[in-house]
Design a protein around this nucleic acid. Sequence first.
DNA 1: GTCTATATATCGATAGAC
DNA 2: GTCTATCGATATATAGAC
Lengths: 427, 427
Amino acid sequence: MTPPPSDVEGPPRAGDNTRLADIRATAGRLFEERGYASTTMNDIAAAAGIQPGSLYTHFPSKEEIAVGLLEAFNADLAAISEVGLKEAQASYATPEEVVRGLVHSMTDLSMRHAAAVRLRAYEAPTAATERFRTLVNYQPPSLSKAWRVATDIFASGPHNARVDLRLLRFTFDQATLAAASYFPGQCPKPVSRLFSDMQLTGIAVACPEDAALDASSAMTAAQEVTAQWAAHRRRSNPDKASELIAVARAIFARRGFEATTVRDVAEAAGVRMGTLYRRVSSKDHLLRVILEDYSNTLTAGFETVLSSGSPAIEVLDAIAYLCVHAERRFNEEARVVKLGSGGMGASPDTPMHDYFLQSERRRRSLEHVVEQGQRSGYLRDIATSADVVQAARCVFWLPYQDVDGAGRRRTHQYLRESVFRGACASR
Amino acid sequence: MTPPPSDVEGPPRAGDNTRLADIRATAGRLFEERGYASTTMNDIAAAAGIQPGSLYTHFPSKEEIAVGLLEAFNADLAAISEVGLKEAQASYATPEEVVRGLVHSMTDLSMRHAAAVRLRAYEAPTAATERFRTLVNYQPPSLSKAWRVATDIFASGPHNARVDLRLLRFTFDQATLAAASYFPGQCPKPVSRLFSDMQLTGIAVACPEDAALDASSAMTAAQEVTAQWAAHRRRSNPDKASELIAVARAIFARRGFEATTVRDVAEAAGVRMGTLYRRVSSKDHLLRVILEDYSNTLTAGFETVLSSGSPAIEVLDAIAYLCVHAERRFNEEARVVKLGSGGMGASPDTPMHDYFLQSERRRRSLEHVVEQGQRSGYLRDIATSADVVQAARCVFWLPYQDVDGAGRRRTHQYLRESVFRGACASR
DNA sequence: GTCTATATATCGATAGAC
DNA sequence: GTCTATCGATATATAGAC
């Protein structure tokens, strides 16, 4: 009856849209910080300044909020992939410019959809819908094609012929998408430049030959550490608590700590709840033991390498070696950390937060190494030491094993050729 | 490790079973009293003396509790139907004994599964599963067959040839199943005897001929009342509140008041919540208006007939006439009442409770008529006046329209032949 | 198996924009 | 006068812990 056009089924009006978008953004921020499972509707409502029940005016469920974020991300991802593929095929620009352009697009995407990036880590409860899973696993076909075409044309130009292009593609693909996790809230431009520089130019001013690196005292120390890791595996002490911890570790690695219930662990271990609580004191305790073991092992390994007295490049090379080995030897632990709220999201005194503090210490010691290397002219000044370390961590810890046939040796060699020597450098 | 057999997947032990059975029984009692929708898990937990969350150790959901009750009922119903059919086909006993046997089995079943009987009224929320609906609508094929065979053999013996056997079957089928609602907590034996006596023997000592009944002043009064009802329908005053009430009435009749949400009503009426609440003050108000109108109309009609000065049989005949007409003219209202917590279940000061109080007054005035008839020797002493009235109400208000082709006239005639003259009487 | 705490979600009802 | 977005209460259900 009212004159103004109040189309019943039409698109929501500006006012509504703003509020809906506001809730989506608020939820996105929380999902990014704490993950899907640890963000409650109460949290979202409180952050949006409304009652929990009122959220359901705008979204039919919590999952639907996440789904909206994922769909927006996927749409952008598809669009960027298409454009990236076209540009790679057209190539008015130099191969390097094409690659840098795609790296920037993807880094920018990651930054703009930080929440979706976190959600894609698939920290979803057991009850997650098929739809959720489908969206999380979405891969636009044109993206891998774009990376392939971009790196192929790049290969025809002057470049480091020994760099493994398959691993290079994988690195760009994974690292750019992970950008939001490693550089939260930062401007995409310098971050993407850093990624490109690190891979294409390399961070070493004059990288030693493989033989020299292999013989460095840092590398010798690193090899001793990894040998110890391998040995440690065999003397398994199967007391009952440890069995439970191993089971928990496997599940945490698959679904994330928050999304895993104590009942899940008990069931997988074939015990009842009561038995489980007789053997371990709490769910947090399980995670604490897992992460403390892991963190201490890493810290010890890092310190061994750092105290080897080798120059910066050799130390970083040995650290890369260590990371590649750790990512496989402690694959589950690494996944638990990646799925968890690794950063500022975790509240103090939680196992995850404590791990984060330790991890920060390791990061800082690497920063000192990089600083020293930059000061003494062995390392290029492509970015601040903090950013260089952050980008290096992002790249060193990628799951290269997912690229079929990529063993530890091949992976480490790839890191030498790209991160240190630069995929663009003609040798 | 403990010696006693703690079979993991085996059947629950006596102790557990008891607790589960206890919860089931407690829930059943509440479902019976208040209906499915108005019984909360909190209610059940409180009545069972445990915490609400603990219920989920034994049942995965509220619906599953109801499903268990319905399944038990359906199993018993199927068994009794089978036995009933066999006995009807074998017939060592007289036809009348066969019918009385089946009436008793079914009445007993109704009493033992009072909760399921109430659940079958289908007062289930919109969200009810297909499974729930299927169980509620379950009809063992052998049951209708058993009634058919039983009444058919009965027809070959000495009986009132003018009784409509189809309606007789329907009455037995429906009335016995409804027994628990009309005679809550009572012993099935006397109730089933009352049902059988009322239908087979009839309550009148010497029932007047149709012509005499048709000409009674009670019947004349009743016809005036129903004529008024029909006239009243036409002068519909379509103000907006009334439209809403009509819509609400239709939905309440389908799903029950408790299981209907205000949003359901608004949607069906094509208005938004705000508009609805501008026209009616509350959900309770909707029900109140519906039931008060209905109850006042019924009471006025009853009083007109009761004050006609006719003798008991004529008054009851006219009341039967009135009920048959009311059940059709006010079919929705009648269904709302049947679906609602018609009895002691409703808490005071609710529309349903107020209706119940009014309905009790009508019942009492009928009791006086029956008492008077019994005292003066016109009505048989087949039971107390209270029980006779209760059984009569149960029978008078059945939805005979569900039997195809059963018009008001045929239905009323049937009631004369059965309830008053007796289906077994040879004329 | 049960407790306590709390999660997600729905419902009746209303305030206030349009 | 109508509709949207909201509230406060409460429902069903799950989780960690014992």
